[in-house]
Design a protein around this nucleic acid. Structure first.
Lengths: 213, 213
DNA sequence: TAGATTGTTAATCGATTAACAATC
DNA sequence: TAGATTGTTAATCGATTAACAATC
């Protein structure tokens, strides 16, 4: 098991780059074609592949189709991944209808909310009462959940998810949830992402005005 | 200028942790209070502060209010940050109405779309024709933009933004946009974030079943 | 074969952590 | 003062890159 997050992120990038290369007619690629397309070094590509046991042909590179297939398997894309979502507010609702997931083999099978006004039993993705979440997760053996509730509720929802058997959480609430040995957590803090950008934009403009002195 | 992205992300975390500590009644903190609250090492806290020229008192720690203020200034939170958004689809619309931004001093001042059906001239956040974006950015001196268009349009929008003078882009389209010397880009790929999580969940369950052998 | 590319090992680079002198 | 905490330097750790032998 490779336990480096950045490494897995690059694997996703390679997969996406390979799909573009395939669309352009590539049948095989060399590490430097792919590194170009993915924005990394050729060494990085070969090193990553070696970590995951992906091998090519000396002198012959890698066959695009085989490579995509191997990466897909590592990323679990050989089967449909069923996930749930808690918090059918605006961001939650947007994710429920996001087409990209289904195309990528990720299916949000049910959403949950505390607000009865949100319940939608017969929609493409039903929105159910929060109380039914634990049972659903157990029955359906769901292992991944998305949290799109307000920050005040996020910690509690994460705990309920963990108790129900969820092993991975994608958290959009603006509060840093901490993973455990049992549960991996991926926090996406939209304000923090913008803060980051704003810092670099400001730093850049200051650096430029400093140059003008 | 500190050019390490992770370092700025931690600064956001410190800020959030400090606000919680303040709410709990803390007047001053030591590096190890804060490191606890933010989930890093005390050394990391002091090192980061030193990088940004933030100083405390030997033996006396840091005053919470002053510390929050100093970090806010570094992150540009002493003034309202005006940003625009392009692509008023579901995710775009959700972000337009996201309360957290305004609370954090980030204001989406206008959205833009190509679809006339989306135009909303008099909303709290107006949605305008894409053609008006360049002029708006120049007139209003906007430097940060959010992209929530389909992947096929993202590259083109990024180029229009850059040409108009935007210096930082938060991109939600599932395509890796590359930054330049002029424009910083922060890509958020939702599918990739889930892929990452799924990998670790699967790896974990395999590791556990392996243990059972 | 000669040339080019992989796979892996070694070197480098950068970030994190530990240690400790300065000092409140 | 004695004890505790900062700020910074040095040590460690891990990830990235370079180099090159193996080989197709």
């Amino acid at each position: 098991m490779v336990s480096n997050r950045k490494c897995i992120t690059r694997l996703s990038r390679y997969k996406n780059a390979l799909k573009r290369l395939k669309a352009l007619g590539f049948i095989k690629v060399f590490s430097d074609n792919l590194s170009d397309a993915a924005g990394v070094t050729p060494s990085q590509v070969r090193k990553d592949f070696s970590l995951f046991g992906i091998t090519g042909n000396k002198r012959g590179g890698y066959k695009v189709d085989e490579l995509i297939e191997q990466i897909q398997v590592i990323l679990g894309k050989n089967e449909i991944q069923r996930v749930i979502l808690v918090g059918a507010g605006r961001i939650g609702a947007a994710l429920l209808r996001y087409k990209g997931f289904e195309e990528g083999g990720i299916r949000i099978v049910s959403a949950f909310d505390i607000d009865p006004a949100k319940y939608l039993a017969n929609d493409a993705v039903p929105i159910r009462p929060l109380e039914e979440m634990t049972q659903f997760v157990r029955d359906e053996k769901i292992r991944v959940g998305i949290i799109t509730v307000p920050d005040s509720a996020a910690q509690r929802i994460a705990e309920i998810m963990a108790a129900a058997g969820i092993k991975g959480i994608l958290n959009f609430a603006p509060i840093q949830l901490r993973g455990t040995d049992e549960v991996v957590i991926n926090n996406i803090n939209l304000e923090s992402e913008l803060e980051n950008l704003i810092y670099f934009v400001n730093a850049h403009s200051k650096a430029n005005s400093a140059k003008c002195d």
